[in-house]
Amino acid sequence: MSEALLRVENLTKSFPVKEPLFGRLRGSPKRVVRALTGVSLEVRRGETLGIVGESGCGKSTLARCLVRLHEAEGGTIEYDGADVRALRGGALRAYNRRVQMVFQDPYSSLNPRMTVSQTLAEALTVHRVCPPREVKAKIQELLELVGLPPSAAQRLPHEFSGGQRQRIGIARALSVEPECLVADELVSALDVSVQAQVVNLLLELQEKLHLTVLFVAHDLRLVHHISHRVAVMYLGNVVEVADTDTIFARPQHPYTQALLAAAPDLDPAKKSVVAAVRGELPSPLKVPSGCPFHTRCPHAFDRCTREKPGLLPHVPGHLTACHLYDAAERHRLAKGEALQT
């Protein structure tokens, strides 16, 4: 369980902003959205790593870089010892067979003109998963695996409900027998009562097929439930990584603390009148210098504005990118204000 299957080191990615002609003529400098600013991460074989963060934190970009939908600009992605960013042609296809993705939107993630069996048969034949005469049986096997009736094969996507479409999307990803599944907001477009069905399916499949899962989501309750470990992202950075229980019980990074406090609790007794964190997310066009969270952080001091903290194990097995946990700062601060963790 502790072996790293996927290792991401210092990954960067930015997107150019389409400037209006007028702006270009005025000679405004070219602006870029900095989606990932040096992300480092490790996914262990067989685990579910939850990746949480708010919009613009780069979690979807990261997911897309991992399956090579986006090309990262700097840094490395290493999968089972191979350099993923260097893969081309057949090697890339082979990698895509091992690492698959399930998408968010049940209404656009399936080709509206292809029946379920056409969609699955295409994947099975292109990758020669099984001999042609076994394709039909394999499709039935996949449908059963994701809890759809055999009759689903001949239908078009529009004949299914949102939850059923997500099952089809999962079946498509599983058709090539991957080891690793990247799930980008798998259930966030579904009604609450249906979400649990799909979550259960994912848990069950992971058990049965020994999948490694990257569960990208914004719903903390969900991530808490299904992840072994959690990485918290903010403005293109991973700010904290730890075991799920640790991170939810003893969050270290001030942003993680704020995120957990802001999530509405189901217990009305925990009602508070004070907002968990002040300020808005800075624009990814203008990522703050130093620590990206310093503009909203209640503990920020001048070092935070100058120097970007590294993602370090201040406590064994618990990585945090925050100067507050730096030994020297702890010492300095202990003399002054009390540190709230």
């Binding site: 579910t48 409900s161 009562s193 649990a196 979550v199 309750r221 969900l222 439930h225 189901l266």
Partner: peptide, 21 residues
């Protein structure tokens, strides 16, 4: 309420409402 994660043990099956709205 039961279908929401958080009530039971982590990574155990949730209790979904079957079917679709």
């Amino acid at each position: 309420l039961r279908s929401l994660p958080g009530g039971g043990v982590r990574r155990q099956p949730l209790l979904p409402i079957l079917g679709a709205p």
